[in-house]
Amino acid sequence: MMNFKIKKISYLFSVAVAALSFSQLAMADKLDDIKKAGVLRAAVFDSNPPFGSVDAKSHKVVGYDIDFAEALAKKIGVKLELVPTNPANRIPLLQSGKADLIVADITITPERAKVIEFSHPYFVTGQQFLVASSAANKLDAFADARIGAVKGTTGEQELHVRFPKAQVVAYDDVPLALTALRNGSVKAITQDSSILIGLLANAADKKNFKILPEYLSTEHIGVGAPKGETALLNVVNNTLLELEKNGEAAKIHERWFGKNSAAPEPRNFKISAPK
């Protein structure tokens, strides 16, 4: 009887180990899947210049994030497929398997890190306010105002923390938020400074607006990968470090944020592994 119990326990243990091994094999194979498919699907913005927008001449999606996505696909040795998204849909696209990576100006936060993996930061920026040129110059002047933000962004979250008395109005993308500012539905909108600079540079009525110098928060931007995909994340991180070392990362920044670009912003950071 004792022998039977021992054999039964041993059998159940073996089944459990086998099931765990199979589960581990089934999980974290995204890199192999990408190589077999011959395609890297990157979720990117197509209406948030200079990170990603449709070029008027070529009608292709171009931008800072697109250049990094292309570098990642080249490193893996596959073609790149761009999956247009907006801030609110970035993580759902990744979790549903419709995208392999998020390369769409996504800020690294502890909350997001619970559901997706993040690479080393490849861009550092800050949240600022875009307001009417006649408006006040201090953030605190908008403490109880209607303020526009993009759904699913850290800017939206930070507004609730910094200005609990403000009425935060969430929009699907930055152009819609700018329209709300134009028609007076909100008194300010918040977004990464680099995006606001690009937005204003392309606006026919840019003289009617200004970006406040004070930062709402500092944002570290990373590439998002599915949870548990260590092999894929390692390739992303190693590629980012290589791009920094060989100077290509600085060239990409100069292309989209250099002094001759539509959204000039100094590069006060380097891509490195967090300590």
Results as ranks from 00 to 15, higher is better:
1 M>C: 11
5 K>E: 12
9 I>N: 09
10 S>A: 15
14 S>P: 06
19 A>L: 15
21 S>Y: 10
30 K>M: 09
35 K>L: 04
39 V>L: 14
49 P>R: 00
52 G>K: 03
55 D>M: 06
55 D>N: 15
55 D>P: 06
56 A>P: 15
57 K>A: 13
64 Y>Q: 00
65 D>W: 00
67 D>I: 03
67 D>L: 07
72 L>Y: 08
89 N>C: 02
91 I>E: 07
94 L>D: 04
95 Q>L: 15
102 I>N: 05
104 A>I: 05
106 I>L: 12
108 I>A: 11
119 S>F: 03
122 Y>G: 00
126 G>N: 15
126 G>Y: 14
147 I>Q: 02
147 I>R: 04
153 T>E: 05
154 T>G: 11
164 P>E: 02
169 V>S: 05
178 L>E: 08
181 L>P: 01
182 R>T: 10
188 A>D: 04
191 Q>N: 14
191 Q>H: 13
194 S>Q: 00
195 I>M: 11
199 L>K: 02
207 K>F: 09
221 I>N: 03
227 K>Q: 15
228 G>T: 07
230 T>W: 13
231 A>I: 05
233 L>M: 13
241 L>P: 01
242 E>G: 06
248 E>I: 08
250 A>L: 10
251 K>G: 02
256 W>V: 01
260 N>E: 14
264 P>Q: 05
264 P>S: 03
266 P>W: 04
272 S>W: 11
